[in-house]
Design a protein around this nucleic acid. Sequence first.
DNA 1: ACATTGACACCGACCAGTTGGTATGTACCT
DNA 2: AGGTACATACCAACTGGTCGGTGTCAATGT
Lengths: 204, 204
Amino acid sequence: MAETSGQKLLDAAVHVIRSKGYSGARVEDICAEAGLTKGAFFHHFESKEACAIAAAAHFAANADALFDAAPYSHLPDARARVLGYVDFRKAILQGELPQFTCLLGTMVQEAYDSRPAIRAACDRYISEHAERLEADIAEAKALHAPDATWTSESAALYSQAVLQGAFILAKAKHGPKVAADCLDHLKRYFETLLPIGGMEHPAP
Amino acid sequence: MAETSGQKLLDAAVHVIRSKGYSGARVEDICAEAGLTKGAFFHHFESKEACAIAAAAHFAANADALFDAAPYSHLPDARARVLGYVDFRKAILQGELPQFTCLLGTMVQEAYDSRPAIRAACDRYISEHAERLEADIAEAKALHAPDATWTSESAALYSQAVLQGAFILAKAKHGPKVAADCLDHLKRYFETLLPIGGMEHPAP
DNA sequence: ACATTGACACCGACCAGTTGGTATGTACCT
DNA sequence: AGGTACATACCAACTGGTCGGTGTCAATGT
């Protein structure tokens, strides 16, 4: 079989939760999307919440693979990798909204208070993704803005905030155009944060 | 009576939906928060969805009043108002998460696909808020960066994206600190977008 | 002054549909 | 034979929403 039932359920959970949120996603919706029944669902997951947490891990693993395979991530220059990341995120704003929005941001928004385990999982995978970016930012900062007051950690998290917010606006206006515009602003910001000339404020 | 039952229900709806999202918020949760019963709820609203839409309007009206009353909005200089807006948004990151996060962003995230009326309401009030900011940005741009390629509209929407994303990160990490850091980045960006000297690239 | 009326705001028991979860059966593989 | 991987049928709990009833208050009649 090309895809196991467990994977089908995880893919279905990712898709349905991205469309309707965690509470709005019924386990039968997920089963229908996967072409399976509730028996299969509860054979693979002990509860709906456990499925959501597994889906978060599945989503994060897919994202890791996607960004690892992206051309920008093999560029030799750290600054080019940072800007390439933003370009790549803009490039993948394709298709329907549930196909490019973030499962983690969607879930944590409604589950942060009532489902601690889901909040923790979302926090973990968002932070891990930010850390990958942070490594590039730190390297670029050392080269282009070593004395700047901002930290590479906060800059990496900021980029994730822009992305999450861009998804919300894209949902509100139902289309990816606003999100693309937001990423243009983010790219411009990174360009000024990492000026090509070198240090932004040479010591007096 | 200091507050009518209708207002109590709206305030309660705003609070509960901010905590648990739209689907996660049970109408009995809202009633309990308001100290009323389901009879009162369905006396004032014809459905849960209608209540959510009214709550969005209520939330937007409260926000309008808050920002109108804020000191920054009376500054004579447009650039100072734009930066003052960001500072003010940072300053109100106080208390528990449901007290400063955005009802509109929370609802549209899970309702954009299945509840068109809620999506439309959230889009409207987010856009109206952005338009208020856009006016100040446009004025500041005319003074400090008249030839820049970015539009005041996209810059205003970008600021909303940063805010929405900052709320998501704050929820994931359950605390407002990340959000404050994001607003620092946003302020720095606006400072470079609107350079004090005047035009950023004088024509050759 | 006082009883009558009726609109309004609200209560809380109730209903029908839905939900997450379970119990049981069965086809298949080793 | 026995365990794995599902399907089917089912249940108890809960959900949004309804409905008859009650307390309050102001207008009206006398």
